[in-house]
Design a binder for these strands. Structure first.
Lengths: 113, 113
DNA sequence: CCCGTGTATTAGTGTTTTCTAATATAGATA
DNA sequence: TATCTATATTAGAAAACACTAATACACGGG
């Protein structure tokens, strides 16, 4: 394998391999997508797009064990996809950033959605 | 666990649980995101966003085995994220849909990217 | 200050996903 | 038609990931 000399392919390849920050771009983007790429987490995010929720209600919506949900919430929070706020006994979660709305809504418009 | 009666949370929960097509929404969206959530596939997609490429060059860019790349391309193609065109001996891949550009570019703008 | 409620963390297990190596197919060229 | 190049497929091993159960921590009310 391996002798394609097509001018244009080679140009693109060279450009990408010398592109400053390509690797970081890939890592950051795929990390966000992989977090949104889990059904339970997607359900959580879509729910929070409707408004702030406590962990108890999130568990009910996603029909998941509290422990599992809590682990998902932590990952989403670490990636700054959601944020949390402590109110008395409970912790209220919400979407952290307007970009998230845009990303998810754009995906919903994709023809296979 | 489980006695939160906050009016607003309950309202959101009820709305979501009765929302026609919520499950399908979740499945479709998370499926696309999970495909874009792999570093190799993200690299492929970002590369194709620069222009059409043959499999040989894609392999070089992502520094992956031909077989692995081929499997990734298949998944991307099944999800209509990329499309392919046979030209003589080789198969040229490109982005299937403008939505993909939008989704990826939006993600790149997210503050952690 | 102790108990109950709500949330987080951890360790281990099971499932999903990706990778590797081998093999198959399809078109081009001799 | 035999062979070479490009790509695809498959089976199995390895790695990544999510789930469960148990436990820990934090706050509020008696």
């Amino acid at each position: 394998m391996g002798y394609c000399k097509t001018e244009n392919h080679t140009k693109i390849k060279e450009r990408l391999l010398h592109c400053e920050g390509f690797k970081e771009k890939v890592e950051a983007t795929s990390r966000i997508f992989s977090l949104l790429g889990d059904e339970t987490r997607m359900k959580i995010v879509l729910s929070l797009m409707e408004g702030e929720l406590c962990v108890f209600h999130i568990c009910e919506i996603v029909e998941g064990k509290q422990s599992a949900v809590s682990q998902h919430l932590r990952k989403l929070k670490d990636a700054k996809i959601v944020k949390s706020q402590k109110v008395g006994n409970q912790v209220l979660y919400s979407i952290a950033d307007d970009h998230i709305y845009t990303i998810v809504k754009t995906a919903l418009r994709h023809k296979d959605c």
